[in-house]
Computed example of a mutant assay.
Amino acid sequence: MPQGPFVAPDPSLSWSASAAPGTAPDAARPYVALGEPEGYDERGRGRALGVRVRPRTAAAAVCAVLGLGLIGGAVTGSWLTGDSGEGGAAGTFATAGGLWHNVPVDRLFPPTVEGGGAGPGGADRTWTRVAVAPDSGCANAFDPLLRKALTPVGCARLLRATYTDSTQSYVTTVGLLFTKADAPAMSSLAARFRNEGLARRTDLMPRPYAAKGTVAAAFGDKQRASWTISVLTEAPVVVYAVSGWADGRTVDSPQPAADAMRSGATTAPAQAGLGNEAQGLADRVERGLRRTVGSATDTEKPS
Rank of each mutant, 00 (worst) to 15 (best):
G72V: 05
D10E: 04
P9N: 08
L70P: 00
A17W: 10
A61L: 09
I71Y: 02
G73A: 08
S16W: 12
W79D: 00
D26T: 14
R52A: 14
P55W: 03
G22T: 03
A17P: 06
A59Y: 00
A48M: 14
V32I: 15
A20K: 10
W79N: 01
C63Q: 12
A28P: 05
G46I: 14
A27P: 06
P25L: 12
E36D: 14
W15Q: 13
A28H: 09
D83S: 07
R43C: 12
D10S: 02
V32R: 10
G77C: 00
A24W: 05
G22E: 02
V32K: 07
D10Q: 02
G44Y: 09
C63R: 11
A60V: 09
S14D: 10
G72N: 09
A24S: 08
E86Y: 04
A27H: 05
L68Q: 04
D10F: 01
G50D: 15
L66T: 03
G69W: 03
P11K: 04
V51K: 10
A74R: 03
F6Y: 10
V53C: 00
A33H: 13
F6G: 06
V7Y: 01
P55E: 04
L13A: 14
R54Q: 14
L70R: 02
L49W: 10
D26A: 14
D83F: 04
S18D: 10
E36A: 15
P21L: 07
Y40H: 15
E36C: 06
P37S: 12
P21I: 04
A58F: 09
S84G: 07
E38A: 14
R47T: 14
E38D: 11
S16V: 07
Y40I: 12
L68K: 00
Y31L: 15
G22D: 02
S12N: 15
T81D: 04
L80R: 08
P25E: 10
G22A: 06
G22H: 01
T76L: 02
A33L: 13
R45P: 04
F6E: 08
L49T: 15
A64G: 09
L49H: 10
A8R: 08
D83I: 00
G77V: 00
V62L: 07
G77F: 01
V7S: 02
G46N: 11
P30A: 08
G72D: 12
G67W: 03
D26Y: 01
A19Q: 14
R43H: 14
P30G: 09
S12Q: 15
A59N: 00
G77R: 00
R45Q: 13
V62N: 05
P11Q: 05
D83W: 05
V53I: 13
L66A: 06
A28L: 11
T23E: 15
A17E: 13
A64V: 04
P55S: 05
W15I: 12
D83N: 10
E38H: 11
W15Y: 13
G39H: 07
T23L: 14
L34E: 13
S16D: 15
R54S: 11
S84K: 08
G73M: 04
T81L: 03
R45M: 13
F6H: 07
P11E: 05
S18L: 04
R29F: 11
S84D: 06
A48F: 11
R52K: 10
T57W: 01
L70V: 10
G22I: 00
G77W: 03
L49G: 07
S18P: 09
A59W: 03
A24V: 05
L66G: 02
L13I: 03
